[in-house]
Structures are given as structure tokens and as C-alpha cells.
């Protein structure tokens, strides 16, 4: 079974994220619903770092959803953009930060480097 969103978020806030633009700053709050309760996670993005706290304080972008939806995103099973289109997650505020959030979550577990895929095709004589 994949990582849950809570596991993932707990481990997120350590170390520099060179994949984030140094110009990106902002706050994101994730409102994770489960059994009538809502758990709040607050991400503060600045200087290629993400600081994660448990806080219901207001944020530039607020993302709501069921725990199951967040877990599927965190496990790389559901694309976060698809989750938004599907209305499994809803977002209000600075939607541009939503695109950054996309990068904070992992991709699908079995993804390959393109060179790896190319080697596999080469072994089949250039036919995919």
C-alpha cells in the first residue's frame, strides 16, 4: 500500500527543494476531511523550502478534500489536476500555487526514466 497523505506531509518539510523556483512563495492549507472531522495542514513555501505545520490559519490557497482523495494523490495514484477537474479536491484562492502543489506530491510509483524506456524499445528493435 502506498504512503498516506499524512505520512507524506510529515516527511515533506525537510531539506531544500531545488525543483521549486526560488521565486515561488506562498502558503497553502490542506483541509483533509474524514468522518466529519477536518485535519488542517499548512505549507509555507519560500526559498525552495517547504515548511509543514498543523494549523488552520488562513492561506493563499486552500485545498479541500476527503482523506481518501489526498491519500490517492500522495500515493501517486491520482493526478492532482485530475482530482481538481473531478471535483475530488476543490481549491480556492491563488490557483497558481496549486500547480506548485502538484510538484510536491510524488508521481506514479512505476514511472521510468525516458532512457530506460528507450533501452527497452531498442531491445525490441526500435518498435514500441
Amino acid at each position: 500500500m502506498g504512503t498516506t497523505a499524512a505520512d507524506y506531509l510529515r516527511e515533506l518539510g525537510s531539506g531544500r527543494r531545488p525543483d521549486l523556483p526560488e521565486t515561488t512563495t506562498g502558503t497553502v492549507r490542506l483541509d483533509v476531511r474524514e468522518d466529519g472531522r477536518t485535519e488542517h495542514w499548512r505549507l509555507e513555501i519560500a526559498d525552495q523550502h517547504v515548511e509543514v505545520t498543523r494549523s488552520g490559519e488562513d492561506a493563499d490557497l486552500v485545498v479541500h478534500g476527503d482523506r481518501d482523495a489526498f491519500d490517492r494523490v500522495a500515493a501517486g495514484e491520482m493526478h492532482v489536476s485530475a482530482a481538481l477537474l473531478r471535483n475530488e479536491l476543490t481549491a480556492s484562492g491563488d490557483i497558481r500555487l496549486f500547480m506548485m502543489l502538484r510538484r510536491l506530491f510524488p508521481g506514479p510509483a512505476n514511472a521510468r526514466h525516458p532512457r530506460e524506456a528507450a533501452r527497452a524499445v531498442a531491445e525490441r528493435g526500435g518498435r514500441p
Binding site: 525543483d19 493526478h79 502538484r102 506514479p108 512505476n110
Partner: peptide, 8 residues
């Protein structure tokens, strides 16, 4: 793009 994803 920010990560590896075969489907996309």
C-alpha cells in the same frame, strides 16, 4: 513538468 510519469 516536475516528476516522472509514464502515462502523461
Amino acid at each position: 513538468g516536475g516528476r516522472l510519469d509514464d502515462e502523461h
